[in-house]
Simulated assay, not measured.
Amino acid sequence: MATVLALSGSPSPTSRTALLAEHTAASLRARGHHTHVLALRDLPAAPLLTADTHHASIARAVSLVAEADALVVATPIYKAAYSGLLKTFLDLLPQHAFTGKPVLPLATGGSPAHILALDYALRPVLTALGAQVTQGRFVLDRHITTTPEGAIALDHDDELKLARAIGQFAHPLASPMHLAAA
């Protein structure tokens, strides 16, 4: 099975985006894939902002990207674009860091007007890094809640659409042929 890295690009410690990334990673684990979630907010600010790829934490994060067979890139949408935290991290990666890797983009936002940010802001950057970008999902913040136990609860329609997107993303990852090509 594949190794999938989920990048959470939210700067908030109580992020719905992070919940969505964790939920997606759990779904992929249930399908037999190895997953790791990297919350970019946990990276040290100074080395991140100065693209110090020799700093141990930054080097480890870049290594996780290189070692992954596929990625989930989750971001909140602010002012019709993905987060600056995600942009800062993507900018320090090597030019072809995602070459041959399937990438599932996920976004959260407060308004349906932000849905276009997936295709007009995030997709071009992922493609420039060489990603094979799959159909992403945008979920309204108000459709993401937590249960008393701390688990994520999505609006029913969003849950179905996300499950479909995860299935389309995960299906080719199960093939040894795909992993050999990546």
Rank of each mutant, 00 (worst) to 15 (best):
T53C: 12
H54E: 14
H54L: 14
S57N: 11
I58F: 13
A61N: 10
A61Q: 11
V62D: 01
S63N: 13
S63F: 03
L64P: 00
L64Y: 05
L64N: 00
A68W: 05
D69T: 04
D69C: 01
L71V: 03
V73L: 11
V73Y: 08
A74T: 06
A74D: 07
T75E: 05
T75D: 05
I77F: 02
K79M: 09
K79S: 11
A81Q: 14
Y82D: 14
S83V: 08
F89A: 07
L92N: 08
L92Y: 10
P94D: 09
A97I: 04
F98D: 00
K101Q: 12
P102F: 07
A107V: 01
T108M: 10
G110M: 14
G110E: 12
S111R: 15
P112C: 04
H114F: 12
H114G: 15
I115S: 12
L116E: 13
L118E: 08
L118G: 08
Y120Q: 05
A121F: 10
L122S: 10
L122M: 15
P124N: 15
P124D: 15
V125L: 09
L129Y: 11
G130Y: 08
A131Q: 13
Q132C: 13
V133C: 00
V133T: 12
Q135I: 06
G136Y: 05
R137A: 13
F138M: 08
V139L: 08
L140C: 02
H143G: 07
H143K: 12
H143W: 06
I144Q: 03
I144L: 04
T146Y: 03
T147H: 00
P148V: 05
E149L: 10
A151M: 07
I152D: 01
A153I: 03
L154M: 11
D157C: 08
D157R: 14
E159G: 11
E159T: 14
L160N: 13
K161G: 01
K161W: 09
L162E: 03
L162F: 04
R164M: 07
R164Y: 07
R164I: 07
A165R: 11
I166G: 05
I166N: 06
Q168H: 09
A170H: 04
H171A: 13
H171N: 06
H171G: 03
P172K: 10
L173F: 06
L173R: 10
A174V: 03
A174Q: 14
S175I: 02
S175T: 09
P176C: 02
M177H: 15
H178N: 02
H178D: 01
L179V: 13
A181G: 10
